[in-house]
């Protein structure tokens, strides 16, 4: 029985990414026509950096979407705000301390994710509600620990994420790219990634093949929390300071970016590269609107409408497919 050699990369996977790629290109061109400064190295570098932060959040959200069972993580923003505020409270003068602090914030996020996962699998609370509740609890915790005070004095190492390594590429951007690449490789090339996709797509079949569905589902939330924890730490390095609830918008934006990137909210299908592209689309959009000097209010409205439209069309076409 002869059949042609097929490569590992499915044409289907790429086809899903096409719309995002096209939109990114369109936005770039549109921005360029508006102002030459738009495609300047500095501006693009800044855009990439901002997008990288969203990319972390989107990657976390993607993992949870992939795990199925109506998975969603509405606590990402809360976790990010938490580590953005609490992270700098730890000593991070030396590289060793910095590494330790990084591990700690990841662990904090992972614990939040663990609680989410347990609530969802053990107590059978729908993910939407559970993560929503957790976000509230996390805010309470953050408030309690920081007593409402913002983070101000930051170590140079942390601020180093802003450093330019290559033209257009800052440290933070590199982190983002590495994260996406690692996540995508894990998804496609490791057993753990494959198991996640199987559990998300058809948990019954997964169970009958001996996969431990509950464990994998909880692990997804733990990973999401951990990544969000790390992202919060990067956020405070990028911004230079942190205040309560500063990462609020990341939660829903990460949902939007993941959906734009082609991830299915039903589970099992999606890509991290797509999520990165989706993040890029959103940040480019914001950037262009800012450049057009549209008053902030109208900007919000347009963003909201466009976002709504994109979400609607994406989920609608998926429902039609079902």
């Amino acid at each position: 029985m002869e059949w042609p050699l097929k490569r590992t990369v499915n044409t289907k996977n790429i086809r899903v990414l096409l719309p995002s790629i096209v939109v990114v290109a369109v936005l770039l061109i549109f921005g360029a026509t508006l102002s030459g400064r738009f495609i300047s190295v500095r501006n693009l570098g800044s855009i990439l950096m901002t997008a990288s932060l969203l990319v972390f959040a989107t990657t976390a959200q993607n993992i949870v979407f992939l795990s199925g069972n109506n998975g969603i993580d509405l606590s990402i923003g809360a976790v990010m705000s938490m580590t953005a505020l609490v992270g700098p409270m730890m000593p991070i003068g030396t590289p060793v301390e910095f590494a330790f602090a990084t591990l700690t914030v990841i662990a904090m996020g992972a614990v939040c994710g663990l609680l989410n996962g347990l609530g969802i699998r053990v107590l059978s609370i729908p993910p939407l509600i559970m993560t929503l509740i957790m976000s509230n609890v996390i805010y309470g915790f953050t408030l309690f620990v920081t007593k409402g005070r913002p983070a101000m004095e930051l170590s140079k190492i942390l601020l180093g994420v802003n450093k330019t390594v290559f033209p257009m590429i800052r440290v933070l951007t590199i982190c983002g790219v590495v994260a996406v690449a690692a996540a995508e490789i894990i998804l496609r090339k490791t057993r753990a990634g494959r198991k996640l996709a199987i559990v998300g797509d058809n948990p019954n079949a997964a169970g009958l093949c001996g996969l431990r569905v509950s464990l994998i589902s909880v692990a997804a939330y733990v990973c999401s929390g951990g990544i969000a924890g790390f992202a919060g730490f990067m956020l405070v390095g990028y911004a230079g300071s942190a205040i309560m609830r500063m990462a609020d918008s990341y939660t829903l934006l990460s949902v939007a970016a993941a959906i734009i990137g082609g991830t299915s909210v039903a589970g099992g299908r999606g890509s991290f590269v797509g999520g990165a592209l989706g993040s890029l689309v959103l940040i480019l959009l914001t950037s262009i609107l800012q450049m057009l000097n549209i008053p902030q209010g109208a900007r919000f409205v347009i963003q909201g409408v466009l976002l709504a439209v994109i979400l609607l069309t994406n989920t609608r076409s998926e429902k039609l497919r079902q």
């Binding site: 919000f300 409205v301 909201g304 976002l307 709504a308």
Partner: peptide, 14 residues
Amino acid sequence: VGTMFVVTGLTFAY
């Protein structure tokens, strides 16, 4: 959620 976005934006505009 889409409505929430839009409405929040409108609030700001208003």
